[in-house]
Amino acid sequence: MLTLNKVHHIAIIVADYDKSKHFYTQILGLTSIQEIYREERESYKLDLALHGVFVLELFSFPNAPKRISSPEACGLRHLAFEVNDIQATRDYLRAQNQEAEAIRIDLFTQKKFFFIADPDGLPIEFYEK
């Protein structure tokens, strides 16, 4: 039987590298582990951590086609972060000029959650602990 230990990381291709780097590091607070420019691919690769644990890679590629998020399409649906205080998280993001959906209740868990979008329209969910 296959044994998986954990999700190692998630990779996202971004349209505007600097804008996305700012969003994920300055708005969401992920920390940069390593940033590499791969000249042969005209591509940046940025490894990001949450509380010291590698979780996300950002890639830039020239002229990468857009993925649609709305209407929902096959593929990655969203990226979700667990938070302790859902209202404080929403308030903070709105203060950072991020559009945030209204807080909703998960019908199955009774936990609160809401969504924003990253600079490329990828849905980002914040889910109450």
Rank of each mutant, 00 (worst) to 15 (best):
A49C: 05
D91H: 11
T25Y: 09
D85S: 10
Y127C: 02
V14A: 06
L30R: 00
E101S: 12
F81V: 10
D120E: 03
V83D: 02
E35V: 02
K45P: 01
L79P: 01
R104H: 08
D120F: 01
G121A: 07
P71Y: 03
R90V: 00
R41W: 12
K19Q: 14
V7M: 15
Y24W: 11
G52R: 12
F108G: 11
P123W: 04
Q26F: 06
V83C: 09
E57W: 09
K66W: 05
L122D: 02
I116Q: 01
H78E: 10
L46W: 09
F114R: 03
T25Q: 06
Y37T: 01
H8K: 11
L2R: 15
S60G: 03
E128H: 04
D106S: 03
H78Y: 13
T31D: 12
L46P: 07
L107H: 05
R77G: 13
P65W: 04
R41A: 11
L79N: 02
S43R: 10
I13H: 12
A49P: 08
P119F: 02
I13A: 14
K111T: 02
H8P: 11
G75K: 12
A80P: 08
I105Q: 04
V53R: 13
E125M: 05
Y24D: 10
D85M: 08
L76R: 09
K19A: 14
N84F: 10
P123K: 01
Q110G: 07
E125K: 10
A95F: 08
V55Y: 13
L107A: 10
K111A: 03
I33R: 14
R94W: 00
K45Y: 11
T109A: 07
I116F: 04
F54C: 08
N63A: 14
I10H: 15
F115E: 05
Q98I: 06
L2I: 15
F54P: 09
H22M: 12
L4G: 13
K111S: 05
E99F: 12
Y17F: 15
P123M: 00
E40Q: 13
D16T: 07
M1V: 13
N84H: 09
Q96A: 11
E40L: 10
G29A: 02
A80F: 03
F108A: 09
R77A: 13
R77C: 12
C74K: 14
Y92E: 08
K111H: 08
E125F: 00
E57H: 14
Y92V: 06
L4H: 14
K6D: 15
R90I: 07
A64K: 12
Y24Q: 08
S43F: 01
F113T: 02
A100S: 04
E39Y: 10
A80T: 09
T3N: 14
C74H: 14
Y37I: 04
E57D: 14
Q26W: 04
L76A: 07
E125D: 00
A73W: 13
L50G: 05
I33H: 08
A102M: 07
L48C: 03
E40T: 11
E42D: 12
I124P: 03
I86G: 10
